[in-house]
């Protein structure tokens, strides 16, 4: 539904207010790059529990999705790489946290498929490995492929660089990563944008996520944009 005026929310607290205990969330970002910081903080504050979170990573102990873990709000994570987070490891090894590890390309494609009306697809990734256990194997031209199922989510949380009130989004550099796919996979997609621009200001040729995929938009406040690994070259004088 085109509800242009109704898409803009005042802040993260208002935008995530109807996320309930037990919801499935798809969350954008790669490491700490391009994560929806405000929406994560708002969920931490409203205290919803038993969340299933689909996200490539799970933040670090004190930032990103790590703050929801530390507050015991996440029941299950679906991720490709979780190596930066001690709390994650503790909760997983103790059995508190359920984890589904998914190859990164498969995770991206599962969300793309989920948002595209495709229930599953065959991929060569993971054949002959533990992640193939229990999955259908099928040969195409003599090569084995695994059946993987699409992912959809009750809510999707993304961060964009620029957006308008129609929900059109533009991402910046590698902060794009999983965000467009997460936006497609969500039944209700909530976008926090660094800058909300007037309708018509974004060049339609340059829109990464068309507004049809986005139900709510708000302007992000006080983004930290933390850098996980600060690597620099020193210029010789």
């Amino acid at each position: 539904m085109l509800r242009a005026m109704g898409k803009v929310y005042s802040d993260a607290t208002a935008a995530v207010a109807d996320i309930r205990d037990g919801a499935t969330l798809a969350v954008g970002g790669f490491g700490l790059c391009g994560i929806p910081e405000n929406a994560i903080t708002a969920l931490r504050e409203n205290g919803v529990r038993d969340l299933t979170v689909v996200s490539n990573n799970c933040g670090v102990d004190d930032f990103g999705l790590g703050i929801l873990l530390a507050n015991h709000q996440i029941r299950k994570m679906v991720s490709s790489y979780v190596g930066e987070n001690k709390i994650f490891e503790q909760q997983f090894l103790s059995g508190e946290l359920e984890v589904e590890l998914v190859p990164q390309g498969t995770l991206a494609e599962r969300m793309r498929a989920g948002g595209s009306g495709i229930p599953g697809f065959y991929t060569p990734t993971g054949v002959g490995t533990p992640i193939a256990d229990g999955k259908e194997l099928r040969d195409f031209d003599g090569v084995p492929y695994l059946l993987e199922h699409a992912i959809t989510a009750d809510f999707a949380l993304v961060r964009a660089w620029k957006g308008d009130r129609l929900g059109n989004l533009v991402f910046r550099k590698t902060a794009r990563n999983f965000n467009p796919l997460v936006a497609m996979a969500g039944r209700v997609t909530i976008a926090e944008v660094e800058e909300l621009v007037e309708v018509g200001e974004l060049d339609g040729d340059h829109v990464h996520t068309p507004g049809v995929f986005v139900q709510r938009v708000f302007v992000a406040q006080g983004l930290e944009k933390r850098i996980e690994r600060r690597t620099v070259t020193t210029v010789e004088a």
Partner: peptide
């Protein structure tokens, strides 16, 4: 330094002339 420009090891990097950006799929 740009928080929006990292490699898969989460290190800050730069992009060469002619570089392109895309989503994970």
């Amino acid at each position: 330094l740009d928080a929006d420009l990292i490699n898969a090891g989460k290190e800050t990097v730069t992009a060469v002339a002619g570089a392109s950006y895309f989503d994970s799929a």
